[in-house]
Simulated assay, not measured.
Amino acid sequence: MKKLILLGLLVSFSLSSFAQRDTKDWYLSVGVNAINTLGSQNPFYNPGDWSYQTPISAAIEFNWAKNFAIEQSITFNGFTDESQVDVVHDFEELEKDYNYLSFDTHVKYYFGNHIFRNADWIDFYANAGIGFFHIDETNLTGNLGGGVLVWLNQSRSFGLRGQIISKFAFDHSESYIDNNHYQYHLQVIFKL
């Protein structure tokens, strides 16, 4: 395993330099998402029980500085009574199907160039922001997360992105389903 990590680092440092991150650029991303409402502090707990019903997500991002961007996203998903039995917060059974809708605004800090200075084909970022979501009721969230963006061409106009967001519901004590949860995204990103 150590040899594979060393080889991966060697390959990333030896790759030729791609274009630098430009400022004042707009990006569009579309893809899929999954929701983990299992009530665990482990974000990777039991992925077979995450929700994947109509898992559509899209976002628009604006880079206003070299390492900073702001993103607005919209996400659709849902929970079915058959597939999500005993998997919501506090392990209560669902009585019917629920749809999930969220709008999130995040500020992103890209720090990949601090880790891999010569590998401009990969970028890591952290994000924080606020969100609005509706399942059975409406709730607001404070969000923290991060992700990785892999550019698939030298002009950095097309890539793949994976991210995880922890969503902390502001008013969660009264609700058994509109509660804290994790959200995972796998998206294709395009420079506009």
Rank of each mutant, 00 (worst) to 15 (best):
Y110N: 14
I70G: 01
Y182D: 00
F133Q: 13
L9M: 07
R117T: 13
E82V: 10
D90T: 06
N67P: 06
I70T: 02
L28E: 02
L38N: 10
Y184W: 11
N99R: 12
I60E: 04
F91M: 05
A58C: 03
F44I: 12
Y98A: 02
F44G: 02
T75Q: 13
L10E: 08
A126Q: 04
N139A: 01
K2M: 07
I35V: 14
F103M: 13
H172I: 00
L7V: 05
Q53T: 06
G8E: 11
P47L: 13
K108H: 12
Q183D: 05
G131V: 02
I70Q: 05
Q72G: 00
L160N: 11
E93T: 09
Y182V: 02
E174P: 01
F116A: 12
N67K: 15
Y184S: 05
Y52C: 06
Y184E: 03
D178K: 09
I115P: 08
T80R: 11
F170Q: 14
Q154H: 13
A65M: 06
N46P: 06
D178E: 12
P47G: 08
Q84N: 14
H134K: 13
L15W: 13
L6V: 08
P43Y: 12
T23S: 14
N179V: 05
F18P: 02
I164S: 00
D171I: 12
W151M: 03
P47D: 12
A19I: 04
L144R: 08
W121L: 11
H181N: 10
N113G: 01
N36Q: 10
N33L: 01
D171P: 11
F158L: 10
K24P: 02
F111T: 08
T23R: 11
N118M: 04
N118C: 01
A169W: 01
S40K: 11
F18K: 08
I74Y: 15
D120W: 03
S14R: 10
G48W: 13
Q20S: 08
L152W: 10
T37Q: 07
T141Q: 10
D123C: 03
K3V: 05
D171L: 13
Y27K: 07
M1G: 07
V87F: 11
D178Q: 09
F168L: 14
Q84L: 07
Q183H: 09
N33E: 01
L160P: 09
P55C: 07
K3F: 03
Y45H: 15
F158C: 03
S17I: 12
V32P: 04
R156V: 02
Y27T: 04
Q154F: 03
Y45D: 13
I189W: 01
N99C: 04
I74F: 15
V32R: 01
I189G: 03
H134M: 07
T141P: 10
G129R: 14
G8Y: 14
F68G: 12
N180G: 09
H172N: 13
S12Q: 09
D104K: 14
A19V: 05
I164A: 04
T23C: 10
S14P: 06
H114V: 01
Q20P: 00
I130M: 11
N127M: 13
H185L: 06
D90S: 10
I115N: 07
F103N: 11
D49H: 15
K2W: 05
F132Y: 14
R161H: 09
D178S: 13
E61W: 00
V30H: 00
S175H: 15
F91W: 07
I164V: 15
H185Y: 15
N113R: 15
K3A: 09
F190G: 04
F79G: 09
T37V: 08
I56P: 00
K3S: 09
